[in-house]
């Protein structure tokens, strides 16, 4: 199973992909995860590849190899269409962050849905960012989206909660568990 997470530096993608990897390791799979840190943190595009199965060789998801794309920002979804399998599931957080050429007025923020529909119709729009705002924790969008993603995967809720408890500091656990549960309630089937 190949899960790709995409978005913009600073959205908490690395932590989300760390958690997914930890859950899948504890569930019993071989897991590999790959991403680029460094320059990309300065507001650039970020992607994280997470792969799990009986045995994983390459840490990279091949083109046309992605089963689930979890995208934290709309435009960043469209950038990775070449990775999607024909019937891939795509979860898109309804959130737009204008890139420099749109900010300066040189280009328009594109409508990305048609690009994704060229490859798959299984597209789920999720209001992760607004849920996070309502909860008074705008930075918690990653855990909400992880909650939504978890409904497409085998491990049950308890294992996820267990991993949140071991990976996060005590002070921020309740807020994150609440966010995770809110994300799990989002209907995407």
């Amino acid at each position: 199973m190949n899960v790709l997470m995409t978005g913009v530096g600073g959205q908490g993608i690395i932590l989300a992909s760390d958690m997914l990897s930890e859950v899948m390791m504890r569930y019993g799979y071989d897991v590999k995860k790959s991403e680029i840190h460094g320059m990309a943190q300065r507001g650039g595009s970020v992607m994280s590849h997470v792969r799990f199965s009986e045995q994983v060789a390459s840490p990279l998801i091949p083109l046309k190899g992605c089963d689930i794309l979890l995208s934290f920002e709309e435009l960043e979804t469209a950038r990775y269409v070449p990775y999607l399998k024909d019937d891939a599931q795509v979860i898109i957080n309804r959130f737009r962050l204008a890139p420099p050429s749109v900010i300066s007025g040189a280009r328009q923020y594109p409508d990305i849905i048609p690009f994704i529909q060229e490859r798959t119709q299984r597209i789920h729009l999720v209001d992760g960012s607004s849920i996070a705002e309502e909860m008074g924790n705008p930075r918690g969008v990653n855990i909400i989206l992880l909650g939504t993603l978890s409904t497409l995967l085998e491990p049950d809720e308890a294992l996820w909660i267990d991993c949140i408890n071991t990976m996060l500091k005590e002070k921020i656990r309740p807020m994150n568990i609440e966010g995770f549960k809110k994300g799990r309630q989002v209907q995407i089937h």
Binding site: Q41, G43, S45, K64, L75, V81, V102, P110
Partner: peptide, 15 residues
Amino acid sequence: VHSPVQHALPGRPPS
């Protein structure tokens, strides 16, 4: 290798 069409999207370089 299948080289899928890549749409010309606005880039997002680090800044």
